[in-house]
């Protein structure tokens, strides 16, 4: 058992500061355990989101010593405890209180994206046939637990605050999961180019690095979507083809 110091961000929309708390760390504890211990013993009104405590729900996102993490999957033994551990709320979203931010923008963005639209069923009983190999890549995207850490580190959102013009990595992954779904027949490429702002992403891969589900966000979702957008709107050969072959 060791005594460790945690610097927790305390504050609301208007003002805030770090406050130091000391607490005992025992074998196997994760950062969220330490925060809960502090909450129960020293800071009853501390605001922190959590649910599953097993890396499956994506609620307890925060910045631990400056890096975006799920607190429930960050073991105290993996961070140096000989100096204070700082825990801050995500920066890309407005603060509500302490470690809790207002992530409602994400839910509004999702609502704007055209929903899943399946082709006609393959069989008379109303079911479809899909090969496992054809859904593997979409299943990768569907692992997303919506922790929004990728949104938090994306500089387009974090530094440039372009929430009105850019939907962020989470929703490119969502878009890719729909566009590459074997049954889906909707076309979202125009939206990706215009209202979703996919062009603003300059593939620095910050999002991929922080994904707790190890989704290869940039390479597997964003780049293929960018290629589809380019093929659809900027390829001169395609353009020629379309002049002679009007779309039905």
């Amino acid at each position: 058992m060791v005594m460790a110091t945690f610097k927790l961000w305390r504050g609301d929309r208007d003002a805030g500061r770090f406050e130091d708390y000391q607490t005992d760390i025992t074998e196997g504890m994760v950062v969220l355990d330490a925060v809960h211990q502090i909450q129960a013993e020293q800071a009853q009104d501390l605001a922190v989101r959590w649910n599953c405590k097993a890396g499956k729900c994506g609620s307890c996102s925060a910045e631990v010593n400056g890096s975006p993490k799920l607190m429930c999957m960050t073991r105290c033994s993996d961070i140096p405890l000989d100096k204070p551990v700082s825990i801050e709320p995500m920066k890309a979203f407005p603060l509500i209180k302490d470690l809790v931010t207002d992530v409602s923008w994400n839910f509004q963005v999702k609502k704007r994206i055209k929903p899943f639209k399946p082709r006609q069923p393959d069989a008379d009983d109303g079911t479809w046939r899909m090969a496992q190999a054809d859904i593997d890549r979409v299943q990768e995207f569907r692992k997303c637990i919506e922790c929004f850490l990728c949104q938090d580190v994306c500089h387009v959102l974090r530094e440039h605050q372009m929430h009105d013009a850019f939907i962020g990595p989470r929703f490119f992954v969502y878009g890719a999961s729909l566009e590459m779904h074997p049954l889906d027949i909707e076309n979202r490429l125009g939206d990706l180019k215009d209202s979703d702002g996919i062009g603003y992403c300059n593939i620095t891969k910050c999002c991929t690095k922080v994904c707790p589900e190890d989704i290869t966000i940039t390479d597997n979702a964003i780049i293929p979507l960018k290629e589809r957008v380019v093929d659809e709107f900027y390829d001169p050969l395609q353009k020629l083809f379309r002049i002679f072959r009007p779309r039905g």
Partner: peptide
């Protein structure tokens, strides 16, 4: 302690 805003206690 505290007020009504996001007060887990």
């Amino acid at each position: 302690p505290g007020n009504r805003e996001y007060n887990a206690g």
